[in-house]
């Protein structure tokens, strides 16, 4: 018995040591949405999910500034839709949003299973441990990646050559919670010429359509309006010759008629997104473009979905303080 106790004690101490080590050395994703969601529990009316096209397009602080809308981006780079569904379920544990937006350009984007390990690390390493994270890893990644993703200590061993003093800064996860999950880029890559169309294979589309149906069901069960959208981009997706959203609209019309679809490409010109100045690359907006889209989106959410102005709420001071931090971090860039 005493032997078993000593083994348990040894393993427990080892787990604590590894946990401490991982907290210090796991590659920081300072923009991680999970700390943001914890800090703003039950305050957020709009959750925006998806891939990098989400956090490069929607700046929640701009929506707060102009409309008093509380929003958070909950997205990971190159993230497949099944993982986005896990993100959604996890986020619902701390938030009761009025509107959920999902950027769907990732339809059929990556192989199944998800083999892009650096990207998968970004999505999973900072996700709260539990059933959602575990099942998502097991379902969306190959068996050879399971150990590496389930035990995040794998994530920091190879960072020796790139360690800096900053790696020893405690509390770096979600250090930029004031951004509310958004990232911003000041790079300008002028876009011109024809839009590139990526043709999504039917089988991959149908696989992800099933995930979208599950998202719709999750939202309907909670009385949440689901908006499927695509960000302004010069690389768009088509399925069977139809633009992505048109195809989704046709497929969801019967069983999920209340799901709304929003193609931001169609409003981009009218709200002043300038292809010569507002793109970071062909699929991501820079902060100028994102600011324009976010201001429009805030007003759209208020007008179309009755999202409330929360600037008189008890937590408003904290959101204002974060807006000041946001402005201080990128003064005037968005103007």
């Amino acid at each position: 018995m005493s032997y078993l106790l000593s083994v348990a004690l040894f393993c427990g101490l080892l787990a604590l040591l590894l946990l401490a080590a991982s907290f210090v050395l796991v590659p920081a994703w300072e923009n991680s949405p999970w700390k943001t969601l914890a800090e703003t529990a039950h305050e957020v009316d709009v959750l925006v999910f998806g891939s990098s096209r989400t956090y490069c397009t929607v700046i929640p602080m701009e929506m707060w500034r102009h409309e008093g809308v509380t929003a958070v981006d909950v997205a990971g780079p190159s993230q497949p839709l099944p993982v986005t569904l896990s993100f959604m379920r996890q986020a619902f544990k701390t938030q009761d949003p009025v509107v959920v937006m999902v950027e769907v350009s990732a339809v059929g984007m990556d192989s199944d299973p998800w083999c892009d390990l650096p990207m998968a690390h970004r999505s999973f390493d900072n996700m709260p441990a539990g059933v959602e994270r575990t099942t998502s890893i097991l379902q969306s990644t190959p068996p050879t990646a399971w150990m590496e993703l389930l035990l995040p200590l794998h994530a920091y061993h190879s960072r020796l050559p790139e360690l800096t003093r900053n790696d020893l800064t405690l509390g770096k996860f979600g250090r930029f919670t004031y951004r509310r999950g958004a990232d911003y880029w000041t790079v300008v890559t002028p876009q011109s010429g024809a839009v590139e169309i990526r043709s999504c294979p039917e089988s991959a589309y149908l696989r992800d359509l099933e995930t979208i149906r599950q998202m719709a069901a999750e939202c309907e069960d909670r009385g949440i309006r689901l908006v499927l959208y695509v960000s302004p981009s010069f690389r768009r997706v088509a399925v069977g010759g139809l633009p992505l959203l048109e195809r989704i609209a046709a497929d969801l019309r019967d069983d999920h008629p209340q799901v709304d679809l929003l193609d931001l490409n169609q409003v981009a010109e009218s709200i002043g997104v300038d292809p010569a100045r507002d793109y970071m690359d062909s699929v991501h907006l820079n902060i100028r473009g994102a600011t324009k889209v976010s201001r429009w989106l805030g007003a759209h959410l208020v007008d179309s979905y009755g999202v409330q102005d929360r600037r008189r709420a008890s937590f408003a001071d904290r959101w204002d303080e974060d807006l000041r931090r946001y402005d201080a971090a990128c003064p005037g860039i968005g103007d």
């Binding site: 000593s6 080892l14 040591l17 590894l18 690390h121 794998h154 994530a155 061993h157 190879s158 020796l160």
Partner: peptide
């Protein structure tokens, strides 16, 4: 003694975990 043993074990495990060459990057 147990303290010495455990210290060696922990040092060995943590060293390998932190500095070993394995996983996706290698």
């Amino acid at each position: 003694r147990v303290m010495v043993r455990w210290a060696v074990y922990y040092a060995l495990i943590l060293t390998i975990v932190l500095f070993g060459a394995y996983g996706g990057a290698y």
